[in-house]
Write a protein that binds this DNA or RNA. Structure first.
Lengths: 335, 335
DNA sequence: CTGTTAGCGCCTTCAT
DNA sequence: ATGAAGGCGCTAACAG
């Protein structure tokens, strides 16, 4: 593999000049720059990442932390990762994955200590996540994807789950619904303490109270059988809900509703919040999409800002936007 | 951050001695070892990754390559990544994610050239994947997860999709079925050229011919509407299939079948191949699970072997094992 | 505008 | 069983 010395020799300049061409840290005559760039191309030269980081420069690597158990419940994880990687590459950064270790915190310590990365992004935040104080103590630059109970001065960005839920309630209330069901995240997500799960419920509750509507709250389940049971109980309650808000993807739920003999939106209005692009549905559901691209772009920006030294506790709560599909109708008159 | 010199000073030994304690490359008296280890603990010393890699040692990082577009079709990806990360950590390796760039091959060149990783693992292989010749040319140690048409001497491991399909056909034939439907991967996966999609179909075809049964082959679709349409056409064909093999997860399919008035297994037997752990189904389906843990463990082993210098073109095709659920019954007599 | 040089932290050969 | 010293490839301070 070619080194900076090889390039310098071939271009007939000093190694430092090559370095300066690369880093743009002082002015270079067009002629020299041209010669150096040609030599770089000819030799397919790439700076040695280890040497760079040793010299005190950046590793240009961002660590991505996610607890091992989160993967089970969050199939969206992969979408986030793809977008995070793109966003990081846009700043010439790579992503180092920190999911495989039992102990999330040790893993961060290790990476920070051995300077494998310049900073971290933290996914699947629990309400009281041990990684938050650890990052603080390590003084390792980081951005949180998700809102912990206490960010302890770390920057974070998140989707406004509470706002999305409130918006859905408001929209349904405006259409005339007075009995609204809220199907929250799955049992597993609640049990892990994933912060967005209760936040969405809380948002819905507040707005329901303000709008004077009754909210029937249940959780979803990954077990189809359980889901059917809970749905039946929900629909059988008296007074029965005339609209359903679904937090996140419970792809089977519309099918279950139909299976129980309800048609959408005639018998039941439906709104999905924090939704993923939906290919499976027959009819365009009213929804607020989870803005994955925007979230990841912001997360990377915040992490890089933290690396640059701004110890900002900036946070970005991305507002929900409701796309009205064809799944909201006025409530059917009780017969 | 502490350096090796700090540790040496604190332990009252030479830096090289500390290094030897760390790398175990020569015998150390118990006393010195103890002293050094204490100093390491006291200072929470961690070797500088960049310095190590500069010195010619390993980076202890494995790159993980997946094309950007694959994420859309393979929700399983995240499971693989989690397991790969665990497997890598078991060998004290970290994972660097290569998904964010438009050009997968450039990305590999870059990482190999700048020595950000010691080797790579390659996911979502297309039948003729450009990464294979590129890795060959770069002489970058790598293991493929998936079987390309031509591995060009690179080691690979994969699930025996053809065998799994054949096994399913055989089992259904043995139960008396003569008209078997095969619901293959989705249009998207076929279009991307993901290698497992056609392999499973081919395996089913070969076994069907050998067993003298007729095979109705369709592809699945992520669109629920399309899926319903195709399923109806399939069930309406004459002679109608009495059993269905589902390649990979089409979670909605059992529901669709039931929705069309078929009960499982009375009206229709069902076998799932390359299945993911199923939480959503009412009844335990006959299935061969995709052995994710085993695949990822093997992939890491092969990659590390390649890094160690064995230029083996070893490959590991992991055989399918069928779990008989309660979804296979003899075909219903035509009425 | 460009060249020379020191040193980042580690491993390893050579010497003891 | 342990030390001393050189150099991996790069950047930045210092010279010109």
């Amino acid at each position: 593999m070619a080194t900076i010395a090889d390039v310098a020799r071939r271009a007939g300049v000093a190694p430092s000049t090559v370095s300066y061409v690369l880093t743009n840290r002082r002015s270079i005559s067009p002629a020299t720059r041209e010669a150096v760039e040609k030599a770089i191309r000819d030799l397919d030269y790439r700076p040695h990442a280890g040497a760079r980081s040793l010299r005190g420069a950046r590793t240009r690597v961002l660590a991505l932390s996610e607890p091992r158990d989160a993967g089970r419940y969050q199939s969206i994880g992969w979408r986030f990762v793809h977008h995070l990687s793109s966003a990081a590459r846009a700043h010439d950064y790579d992503l180092l994955l920190l999911t495989g270790e039992d102990n999330v915190v040790d893993n961060l310590r290790r990476v920070a200590g051995s300077r494998l990365a310049d900073g971290a992004m933290v996914m699947s935040l629990h309400t009281d996540d041990p990684r938050v104080p650890a990052l603080r103590e390590l003084r390792f630059p980081a951005a949180l994807i998700g809102k912990p109970r206490n960010a302890m001065g770390l920057p974070w960005c998140d989707f406004d789950f509470a706002g999305a839920a409130a918006l859905a309630v408001r929209e349904l209330a405006r259409a005339g619904h007075r009995q609204i069901a809220f199907v929250g995240s799955s049992d597993g997500e609640f049990q892990l303490g994933l912060n967005y799960a209760p936040r969405a419920v809380a948002g819905a509750r507040v707005e329901a109270k303000a709008a004077g509507v009754h909210l029937h709250v249940i959780r979803s389940s990954r077990s189809h059988r359980t889901m059917v049971r809970r749905t039946r109980a929900l629909l059988a309650s008296d007074p029965a809900p005339t609209a359903v808000i679904i937090h996140y993807d419970v792809p089977a739920l519309p099918s279950i509703l139909r299976g129980e003999g309800y048609s959408i939106p005639e018998d039941l209005s439906v709104v999905v919040i924090a939704a993923t692009p939906d290919l499976s549905s027959e009819l365009p559901l009213a929804r607020s999409e989870l803005p994955v691209e925007e979230m990841t772009r912001n997360a990377v920006e915040l992490a890089l800002a933290a690396i640059e030294g701004d110890p900002s506790d900036e946070h970005r709560l991305i507002p929900a936007r409701l796309t009205k599909g064809q799944s909201i109708a006025p409530p059917r008159r009780r017969s």
